[in-house]
Simulated scan of single mutants.
Amino acid sequence: MDFSFSEEQQMLLDTTQRFIAKEYGFEKRQGVRRQPDGFSREIWQGFADLGLLAINVPEEHGGLGGGPLETMLVMSALGAGLVLEPYLSSAVLASRAVSALGTAQQCAALLPALAAGEQIAVLAHDEPATRYDWSAIETRAWPLGEGYVLTGHKSVLPHGTSADLLLVTTRLAAAGQQGPLAVFAVPRDTPGLRRLPYTTVDGIPACELWLDQVFVPAAAMLGERSAVDVADGAEKALGLVLDAGLAAICAEAVGALDKLLAATIQYAKDRKQFGSPIAKFQALQHRMADMVLHIEQARSMAYLAAVRCEDEDAALRSAAMSAAKVVIGQACRFVGQQAVQLHGGMGVTDELDVSHFFKRLMAIELQFGSADHHLEKYAAQLA
């Protein structure tokens, strides 16, 4: 299979890599993660100026009309830079959710601001008891007058405290019955929203989000469809959005893995033991060769995920995404652990970027379903 990129795609990758190399060095990142928002608004605007935030926005709404391959290239560059900004949350998941579910009027109102970096939106979807079952949503939307009342609890919401807009996934409810899935666009200052902010192990600002009798107008539901019409379309669209996010995070992992391998090889060349660089020790060469094999397998599966994440055949798409997450999850764990061990005790210090790559890869292995979860899922599909 030909994995070469078009001229435009290669330019996108080169431009993003140059920006990260110039504006997002490790010392700069250390300062960024201590800012109140946990990321840099200046860098975010820089992404907007480069057009990176517009990739997943249709051209008719001020975007570039790109797709999973363009997203893959950007995410790999961001992964190499350990970027803390909410690119996955806002520029991928939220932008694609609005594009897929919103009416023409809603897209016109929301997408240009997302593409220009004027607003940040996040998809409030994960819940404490779902355990990787994305359809097991307990948050409810109860009809009341000319709108809905939302109740529920969303868990580990990346950048939830900084988001201007929350795209809340719910089940429409009536007379105590669970209904079809719906997504509501809820402004951050809506009464009844309660947040508990914290920082995840990989340095990403996140929060728990409670919706305590949050009233929103009917127009806040993306698509403005009735409970009768919303079921199949919203379920299918959200599945595609989440698979696009999974493909994006696989690409981010590959970028981080490449950078971690390069740092480990350089350290092995510089570190001397018994008067010789440890890179000359055959046992350590074998370890680094195994790291290379894992990364190349992960790269191929990231390409597969990008190609298959929009496949209309749900079963084929699901199998491809699970296969990619298994291989990439295993690579995240193996390469991360080997890098830390080869660096010794300094590999877990906060002053060295290796420890931050290790923690980010550990988090990626768990996001959108762990490797173990997807292995079981893939095996069940084969059975």
Rank of each mutant, 00 (worst) to 15 (best):
R225I: 10
E208G: 03
R225S: 13
L222K: 08
I204A: 00
C207G: 01
E208F: 02
A185V: 06
G223R: 12
V183D: 03
A218M: 10
E208Q: 12
W210G: 01
S226Y: 08
V201T: 09
T199C: 06
V183P: 04
E208M: 03
A220P: 13
R195N: 00
A227Y: 04
P187L: 09
R195T: 11
A206K: 01
W210V: 02
V201A: 14
A227D: 15
A220G: 12
G192W: 02
A218S: 15
M221C: 15
E208I: 00
F184I: 08
M221H: 05
L211M: 15
R225M: 15
T199G: 04
G192S: 07
P205F: 02
L222R: 09
V183Q: 05
G192V: 04
P187R: 07
C207H: 01
Y198H: 13
V186F: 06
F215A: 13
P187K: 08
L209R: 01
V201M: 12
L196T: 02
L193V: 02
E224W: 06
D212I: 04
A218C: 09
C207T: 09
R188Y: 02
R195C: 02
E208D: 14
Y198D: 11
L196Y: 01
P205C: 07
I204K: 01
V214K: 03
E224G: 11
R188K: 14
F215V: 09
R195P: 00
T199W: 03
W210M: 07
P197A: 10
D202E: 15
R195Q: 12
A220N: 14
P197G: 08
V214A: 07
A220R: 10
R188Q: 12
T200W: 00
G203T: 06
V186Y: 04
R188S: 14
V216D: 10
R194I: 03
T199Y: 04
R188F: 07
L222S: 11
D189C: 00
M221V: 13
A227H: 05
T199Q: 12
D212N: 14
A218I: 08
Y198G: 03
T200E: 14
L222N: 11
T190W: 02
T190L: 06
V214Y: 02
A185W: 05
P205D: 05
V214D: 07
T200A: 14
A185E: 07
S226H: 13
Q213M: 09
R225Y: 06
F215Y: 15
T200M: 13
D212K: 06
T199E: 12
A227K: 04
V183F: 04
V183T: 13
V183L: 12
G223V: 13
